[in-house]
């Protein structure tokens, strides 16, 4: 499955548009990480735990996007966009959407 955030795919021709596909996941951090983050708010610096958590959730969201696209019979998802929102204390939603298409070699 080809994932791209461009509207065209270099070297390939888009033969069919299959509509929008999306994937999302809501994740919360466990309390230990929140306490560590509280300390980090005093000292400053990168919150490695959160960085990992968010990239894991993003991978999962992309995985769901791929599943949806595969169910439609697509072999590529183009024009992919990410969006993040913090919906409640300590939980954030990762949302990814794009256009499912079929492409073939030019």
């Amino acid at each position: 499955m080809l994932i791209s955030n461009m509207e065209v795919v270099p070297g390939k021709r888009i033969t069919q548009h299959l509509g929008m596909v999306q994937g999302s996941t809501v994740r919360a951090k466990h309390a230990g990480r929140d306490i560590m983050a509280g300390f980090k708010n005093i000292f400053g610096g990168e919150l490695k735990g959160y960085t990992e958590l968010l990239s894991e959730s993003r991978e999962e969201a992309i995985e769901r996007l791929k599943q949806q696209a595969a169910a439609l019979g697509a072999n590529a998802v183009i024009n992919v966009r990410f969006s993040t929102s913090s919906i409640a204390a300590g939980a954030s939603e990762i949302f990814v959407y794009g256009t499912a298409v079929t492409v073939e070699d030019r």
Binding site: I3, S4, G44, Y50, L54, R58
Partner: peptide, 25 residues
Amino acid sequence: KIPPPEYLRHNSTLVSGSVVISVDY
């Protein structure tokens, strides 16, 4: 948005990088 024609024969894939950074007191 759209790469110049010399990249027409290239493969493409999504890449991303993220970081969470905290303020100090």
